[in-house]
């Protein structure tokens, strides 16, 4: 019974419900955290790229909001998530007497953290949309909100999709740090399993594989969505004798 392989089988056989539950909690926190984080990031990124008017009350207000957003982004990007988890979980208990549900606390921490990163990703995505796209929308008579919703943001969302997927994968792995506030995610469960059996290598080897399966599955799903969003590479030319006419049209005016 000392062979690792046999232990791995045994641990899986007896503890699979714990791994499954842990994986479920990890995915739940990572998914909801990433979605809310992306929404926070979208909002923050959009606000930070609103052109600041030259004068008026709106200018002061916008500048104030921008400063607040900068502080938020720099602070949460500049401190480890494991420390933020401790500060928020124990801080809210000490200051307000809240006994936060660890899973909810975990989602909040992941969302706030992701939001700080996503804000910069979104800002970069907005800046990288060609100025000509704004100009064409403005020239057609669209206002700033219409320009953003119908022209710029759809392109931004497509462009930030790979970075968002990246963030989701990072979150699946980083939820492991939430074990410090007793969130019963995958890493926490594994520690328990390992402790119960006094078999650390085997338990963590199993969880290593589980983490990889989770992240790789997410990668594949995101790739599929990206391809869906890009649409087919071909297009159909409408009308009869389509191919011939398409050729003719390229030749107009020659």
């Amino acid at each position: 019974m000392d062979l690792s392989f046999e232990w791995i089988i045994k641990i899986i056989e007896t503890n699979w419900p714990m791994f499954l539950r842990g994986a479920g909690v990890t995915l739940l926190i990572a998914l909801i955290g990433t979605i809310f984080g992306a929404l926070i990031g979208l909002l923050a990124g959009i606000i930070r790229t609103i052109p600041i008017p030259e004068r008026g009350a709106k200018r002061g207000f916008l500048k104030f909001i921008n400063i607040i957003l900068s502080i938020y982004i720099e602070f949460f990007r500049g401190t480890p998530m494991i420390v933020q988890a401790m500060v928020i979980f124990y801080g809210s208990a000490a200051a307000f007497g809240w006994q936060m549900n660890p899973i909810i606390a975990g989602v909040v921490i992941v969302a706030i953290n992701t939001g700080a990163y996503m804000a910069e990703i979104v800002r970069g995505g907005i800046i990288s949309v060609d100025a000509g796209q704004y100009e064409a929308a403005q020239a057609i008579g669209m206002n700033h909100v219409q320009t953003m919703t119908h022209v710029v943001m759809p392109q931004v969302i497509r462009n930030i999709l790979p970075a968002t997927g990246n963030q989701f994968i990072i979150n699946i792995k980083d939820t492991a740090v939430l074990s410090v506030i007793s969130v019963t995610e995958l890493f926490f469960q594994t520690k328990t399993v390992a402790g119960n059996n006094f078999r650390y290598f085997e338990a963590f080897f199993i969880v290593c594989i589980i983490y990889f399966i989770l992240t790789y599955a997410v990668t594949l799903i995101l790739r599929y969505f990206e391809r869906k969003l890009d649409g087919p590479d071909n297009y159909t030319v409408v009308g009869s004798h389509a191919q011939m006419d398409a050729g003719e049209h390229k030749g107009i005016g020659q």
């Binding site: 297009y235 030319v237 409408v238 009308g239 389509a242 049209h249």
Partner: peptide, 8 residues
Amino acid sequence: GMDRFVNA
């Protein structure tokens, strides 16, 4: 002369 390319 681009009416046939609506889907492109």
